[in-house]
Design a protein around this nucleic acid. Sequence first.
DNA 1: TCTGTCAAGTTCCATTTGGAACGATCTGTG
DNA 2: CACAGATCGTTCCAAATGGAACTTGACAGA
Lengths: 160, 160
Amino acid sequence: MKSPLAQVDEAERDELRSLMLARSPVLTAFRLNYVANSFVARLYGRMEAEVGITRAQFIVMLCLSVRDGTTAQEIADATQRPKNSLSRAVRALEQKDLIERRLDPVDHRRQPMGLSNAGRTLFRRLEPMAAEQEAAMLAPLNAEDRKRLSELLMKMAATF
Amino acid sequence: MKSPLAQVDEAERDELRSLMLARSPVLTAFRLNYVANSFVARLYGRMEAEVGITRAQFIVMLCLSVRDGTTAQEIADATQRPKNSLSRAVRALEQKDLIERRLDPVDHRRQPMGLSNAGRTLFRRLEPMAAEQEAAMLAPLNAEDRKRLSELLMKMAATF
DNA sequence: TCTGTCAAGTTCCATTTGGAACGATCTGTG
DNA sequence: CACAGATCGTTCCAAATGGAACTTGACAGA
């Protein structure tokens, strides 16, 4: 059990965080990044510890779950991650038999990929972890707020 | 000038991005991270190229601009960055004479820091760059939307 | 006062990162 | 058909990263 002194210390520890969230310049951007950082740190920390899947590996699987036959280059363009990192992630996923890499019959430079059965099975474990983390993040918002937030972010993402 | 074919290619290149923004699981989190990633990539890319200030260095200066006398440990807690990275950033800023490091007279472990005059001058160049990037990010939103977005993010950041 | 524990900041070092160069392949033009 | 230029994925390697150990200082309890 914590002493009153420890509680004071803890409050002081959060003081700068609150101050930054309330008063830093470029307020919206700061808050946005703060929330995004918290989200990815918790999610990828958990995925790596519990399932041994890294950020880049999850991103590849996520893209393949949305569209089978996606290539590494397309993932790089869509997610703003360097393609050599993705290349490594792809190799790791392939070695774990979580994805299958085909060769585009008409363009031999491209390697369309897809989740394997094992990959789909694993992804079904990963997805709820992301959903849980999102739920925790959105916890303070009611249904209408959530809908509006998602729409606002969509507007921004569409042109930025 | 681009050929019609090139335009088609460009549309195809964005296809996965649009698809992910519209249909990926954990939609709100994906959009949030997409926007946040775009923001930091552009901002820190520009700061590093034009002013030679890294992400960690900017974060330190930002915290000091909000509260003089902040310590490295407090910045680590408030911004979720590892303290050894911050330690390096602090040393780099000190060598450039952008910050001053004092010694807490009552607790000699702590080193409260502050922007130097040169640091304040440089920060006045950095801040508009962040503001511009934020403005670009928020461009599709009207004044009311912006206010609401910032409030929603504040609610989330307060407890997450 | 002495001792054990904890906190702030630094340093060590194995790992990760990503820009740049590369090889292979495709496409368009003469 | 040959060649120039672009594109996909990979590899190289210098630099950044961050977990863990370390140093120094604070402090509570015996």
